[in-house]
Simulated assay, not measured.
Amino acid sequence: MHTVRVWDLPTRLFHWALVLCVIGQIITANVGGNWMNWHLRLGYAVLTLLLFRLVWGFVGGHWSRFSSFVYAPGTVLAYLRGQARPEHRVGHSPLGALSVFALLAILLAQVGSGLFSDDEIAFSGPLVALVSGDTVGLATTYHRSVGKLFVVALVALHLLAIGYYKLVKKERLVRPMIDGDKQVQAPMPSARDTVRTRLFALGVLVLCAVAVNRLVGLGAATTF
Rank of each mutant, 00 (worst) to 15 (best):
H39F: 13
V55Y: 02
R41T: 13
L115Y: 01
L127N: 10
H88C: 00
V76E: 11
S68T: 15
L95Y: 09
F69A: 06
L51K: 01
N37A: 15
W16L: 04
D118A: 01
G24P: 00
G125T: 12
W56D: 13
G33A: 08
T48A: 15
V128D: 09
R89D: 10
Y44H: 10
A72L: 14
Y44E: 15
V90I: 14
G125N: 07
V59S: 13
T135W: 09
P94Y: 03
A17Y: 02
G24I: 11
W16I: 10
L98K: 03
G133W: 03
Y71P: 02
V131N: 04
A102Q: 06
L115R: 00
I27D: 03
V76W: 04
W63N: 09
A84E: 11
G24D: 10
T11F: 02
H39S: 12
A122Y: 12
A105D: 09
V46P: 04
L77A: 13
T48E: 11
F58Q: 04
L13M: 13
C21P: 03
F123Q: 00
I23E: 06
G32Q: 07
V76N: 07
L13I: 13
D119R: 02
L51P: 14
G112V: 08
L130Y: 04
M36G: 06
A102V: 05
H88D: 14
P94K: 00
A102E: 06
S67R: 08
F69G: 00
S117T: 03
L40H: 09
H62I: 13
H62G: 05
S117R: 04
F69D: 07
Y79W: 11
I26G: 01
T11S: 14
D119Q: 08
H39T: 15
I23W: 01
V90H: 09
N37T: 15
T75G: 02
G112S: 06
V59T: 15
V59K: 05
A109W: 08
C21I: 08
Y79C: 08
G57M: 06
F66T: 08
P126I: 08
F101H: 01
A122H: 07
H92Q: 03
A97G: 06
T48S: 15
A29C: 04
R89A: 05
Y44K: 02
R41A: 14
S124M: 12
F69E: 08
A102C: 12
F116N: 02
L115P: 00
A105N: 09
A45S: 15
F101V: 05
V19P: 08
W38N: 13
V76R: 00
A129C: 07
G57V: 10
G61Q: 05
I106Q: 04
P126T: 14
F52M: 07
C21F: 09
H92C: 06
Q83P: 00
G24E: 10
G60S: 07
G43S: 10
Q83F: 00
